[in-house]
Amino acid sequence: MSTIELVAGEVRASCVRAGEQVVVSFLGTADAQVDAQLEGFLGQVHAMIEREPVAEVIADLRHLEFMNSSCFKAFVTWLVAVRRLPRASQYRIRFRASERHHWQKRSLHALSYFGGDLITIEAG
């Protein structure tokens, strides 16, 4: 099992890989204080998957209270990086969202449209 972690400002994130399963979990608030760190964290996640490919990554946002536009951009950058991989190396991202945090529905709709068939959203 391998782990990548981010602790910055009001956000906590971790990426845990166990075999073929990769789960990236977020907690707290991702705002302007942490946008560069978040982008770096997602870059590390992407690099790890490039080295050891998987078909799907779970991005669990259920405990992410809020995300600002510059952190939203970090996810856009991640999606672009996945899109730039050769088709056979691209992996899907399954977002787990919370209906309690209403912003997630609209932000993930925009992200899913941007990412096309790479993106799946699980509302819960």
């Binding site: 951009k73 856009v76 950058t77 999606l79 672009v80 925009a110 449209y113 941007f114």
Partner: peptide, 9 residues
Amino acid sequence: YQALMIEAA
């Protein structure tokens, strides 16, 4: 907005 997202990346 989608076009801005491409630029943002």
